[in-house]
Design a protein around this nucleic acid. Structure first.
Lengths: 164, 164
DNA sequence: AACATTAAGTTGCGAAACGCTACTTATCTC
DNA sequence: GAGATAAGTAGCGTTTCGCAACTTAATGTT
């Protein structure tokens, strides 16, 4: 229940940049692994607990936080009202590119091998492509094709369009 | 210096999935923000400290960890040997898609506005596209186009190719 | 109805990590 | 040499983490 700690430094930064805001929701120790569980179809407390080996109180706290942030939705089962289902919301599902990018980085630079299970295109059962940074018209952008710019110097589209 | 805490649960999981391995390197509280600083050109201890408002001992610890993991490279300046430069390695730079994806998620679902500074295509100064999960041939894949699969059922390419 | 089982937490407490402030060390400037 | 600067380190109180045991409510069993 109780609103956990304040952590002012991150909140202050969050005003000017969205990364701290994102980390406020997802930055804690088990959040990404719980999310991965959700993407893989886990939805009950005990499933997460036994799959991840996380302490029960921490799991309860993380699930509550993810629900507070609208990343998971909590609903008690109709057929067995002891059980609770935690399911990804649209907002939670929108973290897929982030999670895949992080996983792919781990495969390439840490473990050196593909993670299990593998994410594939349902149509042809081929692995998805590496997640990359691309230009508005689909060119892959590398280290020297990128620039950090103030919003007022950006060409070509409004903020509204950019958000979509 | 001293090897910080053990945290066994994550390490055990890391054997079978690369996400825990990635989080082992990047999962701590300030790691992503330090990385963001690096991407934005910060490279000295005092720059990170004043920009992020992070405690000095924690900053020292995180920088050392990132160096240990090969994400940042530490080098003392030649012209002023009091100063130390922390620069992104290739491995560190490879976290760009992850960081951009997380930032974009925060823009869309948390702050509701573009983060500053904005990442643009150097060629035309237009904002980069949203980072997305795509098929091997460049189609954008949504919720219902994806499948989790065991590696042995994957079609079309070897592990070697997939890693690149 | 009585009793055991299951699911989802909660509580207590020791260990680890975090964060603040002050201190140290090496280097550079004057 | 005196002072300033850069990059840490040390001490110490607060918060979070993690383990194990306990609670609560719904369900199954006899």
């Amino acid at each position: 229940m109780g609103h956990n700690g304040l952590r002012e430094p991150l909140r202050q930064l969050a005003a000017s940049c969205s990364l701290p805001a994102a980390l406020e929701a997802m930055g804690e120790r088990w959040s990404f692994l719980i999310l991965r569980g959700s993407f893989n179809g886990l939805c009950h407390f005990e499933e997460f607990q036994s799959e991840l080996g996380i302490a029960r109180n921490i799991l309860a706290n993380r699930l509550a936080r993810l629900v507070d942030h609208g990343i998971l939705a909590r609903q008690t089962c109709d057929d067995d009202r002891r059980k609770v289902e935690y399911r990804l919301t649209e907002k939670g599902f929108a973290l897929l590119p982030t999670m895949v990018a992080l996983r792919q980085w781990g495969e390439r630079w840490e473990t050196g091998m593909p993670a299990t299970p593998v994410l594939v295109d349902a149509r042809d059962h081929r692995r998805i492509a590496p997640v990359q940074v691309m230009s508005h018209d689909g060119r892959i952008l590398g280290k020297h094709d990128l620039l950090w710019s103030l919003p007022e110097n950006v060409v070509g589209e409004t903020v509204e369009q950019a958000a979509e």
